[in-house]
Amino acid sequence: MPDILAPFQYDFMQRAFVVALFVGALCSSMGTYVVLRKLSFIGDGLAHASFAGIAIAYLRGANFYAGAAVATIVTALGIGFIHRRGRVSLDTAIGVLFTGAFALGVFLMSRSPRATVDLQSFLFGSILGVSSYDVAMVVGLGLFVALVVGALWRPLLYTSFDPVVAQAAGIRSGFIDYALLVILALTIIVSLQAVGIVLVAALLVTPAAAAGQLTQRFVPMMLLSCAFGVFSTVGGLYASYELHASSGATIVLLATLLFFVALGVNAARRPRRAP
């Protein structure tokens, strides 16, 4: 087998690459809406909020995805509800709920003597440790999210651009906002295995932010973001194997590098101001 294909001789690496591919495509596609709606903080917030559910599931021996899903979706809907009904700004609602949920997770884990080693993998991901069950969950949830986005992309786009006029025209902007929060929560759950709680926000924001530097059209931005996301996850995983480094960190570093390259390309294209 040629050296370049060496990582693929292992089953665990094959599974990791499948997960990397799906997570990269999914996070960066959803990230386009996150960046355009200025919701960068929410990715970080929901990822941290999932920790409460993960901790409860871990300590009770329940399903990881079910625990993360319940905590993340409840937090997402809670953020939307408090923001819309409670006259609380979105960033404040996110800040209050995610820190509360994260603190609950830390509190529960701190009372368990066997939790310290696993805490690391929850925070920074363990893509090399994914099982066939994890792959099936990631692929299944990923396809579901893709289906929902495929069905709702027009109202999502309209309410992202001009929510008031979209609502007057009959688009249920409240439903669309909640739907976005739920599919964002599912995207984050899917991604936790790959890059962990701390770094998932980067995958939601950085590829889309890089794409936004290079195009002024929505569909090209989403496609470019998707390409950057997949390049970051798959390329980062490969690089981490070669460099014997943390896969989650390498993935995010590659995405960050792409962002700065895009920033440079955009700056170079812009006409210089006259002195």
Binding site: L157, F161, D162, A166, A169, Q216, R217
Partner: peptide, 26 residues
């Protein structure tokens, strides 16, 4: 509906044709 002041992000990645096409989305 055409509001008096459009409270939108004018850096949003859309062209004139894209914005007009949004009228069909509902």
């Amino acid at each position: 509906y055409v509001p008096q002041v459009e409270d939108i992000d004018f850096q949003f990645p859309v062209t004139v044709r894209d914005v007009v096409a949004m009228g069909r989305y509902p």
